[in-house]
Design a protein around this nucleic acid. Structure first.
Lengths: 223, 223
DNA sequence: TAGATTGTTAATCGATTAACAATC
DNA sequence: TAGATTGTTAATCGATTAACAATC
């Protein structure tokens, strides 16, 4: 049985945004902040901020607000980025390499311990401090090393089978960059980065106004 | 004044998912599908699918369902991916190059007409069919070419000023990969791909169960 | 025609916002 | 203490689901 979250997706999606703002506030030397001020900054209501934070505990102080550094730390702990994870990347194409080279990765406690590809031309090439290994060795690698996170950076057709392989190998989480919804057991968690979805939403927004002008006109004609 | 969308964000976020499923169904030779069947496939209710689609028009047929190919085509038009866009990429690091090399880009009608970087070491290097140009030439480039979309693939500190520059240069849309919320006039639209946010949600999910076990225990102690 | 399934209205559910007592 | 601001309960709003008449 899957763990049933007590926190709604809407709240979970906002947590990283809180964290980002708190990091910036701390960086700017701000010591304390009220829910009203934070709300103004984040374009939301003070109410929502207090409700969201109180899903996890009362980290504020009446009459004072929130201590920025301490709330940031709490938030890091809630997000689970105050500990270390071992990750492997499967697929050493553009995306796999971008993830490997992504500097935020290390800052959030991620240790990339291996990168794999099926293409003999990619195998053996350098990728940061690592060398791309043949995909055929992934199973053996997962058996030896205790890996927490598998990054799926392979083409669409290979994504599901790579996911299955990672799950069999014992990873606890999948970070999926393939443009599909990966199936996996409830014991494993996943998030996806769908470039194409994001791009489609962009083009939708570019055209929405014209689209409805057209729809309205057609409806008027029909009357 | 910003155009006030008649369609909720929840619906908009689902549109690319519909499109993906319709493409796959068509690819598999499926001719027609009912809202019930599509709902089962997408893990949602038939009701939601009918409501969503009817934001844009009655594309179904009573007693029959939806014609897959025609609904796919309608959806492509709604998403605005049945036309051509000119895009520039600012930042030729890992992410900029990954976007430039992203094959789905072209398929969705995107034409990358330029890639720019401030780093003299990057300038002049090849990136697919293009050559990385000095960022100093971006203004002049935008003045000459009519560019629709600007891709922001620069570090955090440079992101807002690059956005401003792109907006001044006349782009209609920003695709932001920097880990911050970009400010821009209402006449421009934007979407972001926040790798770090996605990663933080992943680590949150990995730890949520343990987190609440801890919270519950602490509350019991306090009683 | 009869059966199926849409389009659409009504009911429910959950998320957001408002209000205010508790308290620093 | 008085003022400020939280934590939390209640009210509102919007999104999802259910129901069903319309119709292919």
């Amino acid at each position: 049985m899957a763990y049933q979250s007590r926190v709604s997706d809407a709240v979970i999606r906002r947590l990283p945004v809180y964290y980002r703002h708190l990091v910036e506030l701390e960086h700017n030397g701000v010591e304390r902040i009220s829910s009203r001020e934070l709300g103004a900054r984040m374009n939301t209501t003070a109410s929502q901020i207090r409700q969201d934070i109180n899903c996890f505990g009362g980290f504020g102080q009446q009459g004072y607000g929130y201590h920025v550094a301490s709330l940031r730390q709490h938030m890091a702990s809630i997000l689970g980025i105050d500990r270390v994870y071992k990750a492997v990347i499967v697929g050493a194409g553009n995306i796999g390499r971008a993830v490997a080279g992504y500097t935020g990765f290390e800052r959030d406690g991620f240790n990339i311990v291996g990168i794999f590809d099926t293409d003999p031309k990619a195998v053996g090439t350098a990728c940061g401090k690592l060398t791309v290994q043949p995909a055929a060795e992934l199973d053996a690698f997962l058996k030896k090393a205790k890996v927490d996170v598998g990054v799926i950076a392979v083409p669409l057709d290979a994504a599901q089978s790579v996911a299955d392989q990672l799950v069999r190998g014992g990873v606890r989480a999948l970070w999926n960059f393939a443009p599909m919804d990966i199936q996996h057991p409830d014991s494993v968690v996943s998030t996806h980065v769908h470039l194409s979805d994001s791009l489609h939403i962009l083009t939708y927004k570019m055209n929405e106004e014209a689209l409805f002008k057209q729809i309205d006109e057609r409806q008027k004609m029909e009357k």
